[in-house]
């Protein structure tokens, strides 16, 4: 393969990968315990996707293909590094991966609905939530800076997530009822 064909192939890959990266990342995140773990797996997934891009059929469903690769890499990661960690078992990974793949359009709408639901959260709490979700944020630090005990902060996070998920579900329900 000459280098301009190589560049062209790389561009084709990047276009697809960039378009589907958020969905692939969300898919990986649903299967591993932490966001940091999802980052680790995503590094591998992106490398494998590029390495195997030749085997991907033009016109095929990139996202479905990538979800398959991601699921495989999650299982490999669990065998390598998750052995002593508290992780989903293989059966649960298989079931969740399969159902979530089929359900991805709805899950994507849920992710999109978050921004609107966040607007209903008071600004100070919204800012705090965003701090807690910054990459590399330490919950201990965010808790302390906000004047709250760590345990209390986790309780607050649980409550916020549940409120947001309720709001998201409601807004999708209303959307469906309206259309």
């Amino acid at each position: 393969m000459n280098s301009s064909a190589d560049t062209e192939r790389h561009h084709r890959f990047l276009r697809r990968f960039t378009a589907h990266e958020p969905a692939i990342r969300a898919h990986v995140r649903r299967l591993v315990p932490s966001r940091a773990d999802a980052d680790d797996v995503m590094q591998e997934v992106s490398v494998v996707l590029w390495d195997k891009f030749d085997t991907f059929e033009e016109g095929g469903d990139f996202r479905a293909w990538a979800f398959g690769v991601a699921r495989f890499e999650v299982l490999a990661w669990m065998r390598d590094r998750g052995r002593d960690r508290l992780v989903l078992d293989e059966e649960a990974v298989a079931r969740i991966a399969e159902e979530a793949s089929a359900d991805e359009p709805r899950l994507q709408r849920q992710r999109e609905a978050l921004e609107q639901c966040m607007q209903k959260v008071p600004a100070a709490q919204r800012g705090l939530l965003m701090l807690a979700y910054q990459e590399g944020a330490s919950i201990q630090e965010v808790a302390r800076d906000s004047g709250r005990s760590v345990a209390g902060f986790y309780q607050w996070l649980h409550r916020m997530r549940r409120l947001l998920l309720d709001c998201i579900r409601r807004s999708l329900f209303n959307e469906e009822a309206a259309s």
Partner: peptide
């Protein structure tokens, strides 16, 4: 329920980014 909560977790991280 599990899938939706984890899905929210990644949406929050994406928003925070």
């Amino acid at each position: 329920a599990f899938t939706e909560m984890l899905n929210l977790d990644s949406a929050l991280a994406a928003l925070a980014a």
